[in-house]
Design a binder for these strands. Sequence first.
DNA 1: CACTTGACCTGTCCGC
DNA 2: TGCGGACAGGTCAAGT
Length: 291
Amino acid sequence: MPELPEVETVRIGLSKLIIGKKISAVDFDWKKAFKASRSDLNDRIIGSTITTVSRRGKLLIIALDNNYSMLVHLRMTGQLVYRSKKASFGAGHPSDSLVGKLPDKSTRVIISFSDNSNLFFNDQRKFGWVDLIPDKDVFEIPFLKKMGPEPLSPNFDYKRFKNALSSRLNSQIKAVLLDQNVIAGIGNIYADESLWLAKIHPMNKVNKISEKKLKLLHSSIIDVLKLSIEKGGSTDRNYVNAEGKKGSYIEFANVFRKENRPCPRCGIIVKKIRVAGRGTHICTNCQRRIM
DNA sequence: CACTTGACCTGTCCGC
DNA sequence: TGCGGACAGGTCAAGT
């Protein structure tokens, strides 16, 4: 499940691999993968050169030198994998990789560069998407216009955090953390991990949580996201970085996917429950429910 | 209006 | 061994 740290890891990887490359062809076999029409693609993409790769929340923004940007959302199972000319054909399947020969049966889009290298957009469950938007309109699309603050921005102090929460005081804290319009980039893994760190039960209503714990939650979110970026993100099922390799954060997780194992803090067995329609991992001793 | 639930997909795992 | 069903969770639409 690519969340902020995974998308950021892909961004860092792509920045090193594709900036300055000229696009020679685009191909896709699944119409829902690309929102833009084929004629737009041919007119706007082919012949252009990639200038920057940035990120807003879980969305990648790949800017071209013609005032257009390519937006890529990986949603649940999306992968964006770069292969040089040689590696595109054959290449083995090393232990730190989940991706073998490309294209494979989950490949939706292939972007080819003039040096014969390729960027593959794979998406097993077909939830992800790619779009082409004029630069000036990118931050006007509703998805980005409504999006909450970036948790790793230097501006994201406790005051901004509390202000972001203020519109959802009567909701369960986990549902609020997962809402991209409140804070950008948090998904199921980092919601569970930061709530465990801050010793907050995910079902507690925001307005019942003490100031002290909200302050701890604010710093926990930042700490957890930063640590995960350091570890190259989490490979829970099929996330890989721009080189097709796994991340290692999941080894450092305290509760996520640790049900029936002892809480690293108190030793009580971690439970899996359902909150906001999501599988949720908690220590019922450290994270007390406020009724 | 505020908030919750279901749909979108496909691969994997579990029980019979 | 095969098969049905539950499950995984990011986002938006539909429902309460």
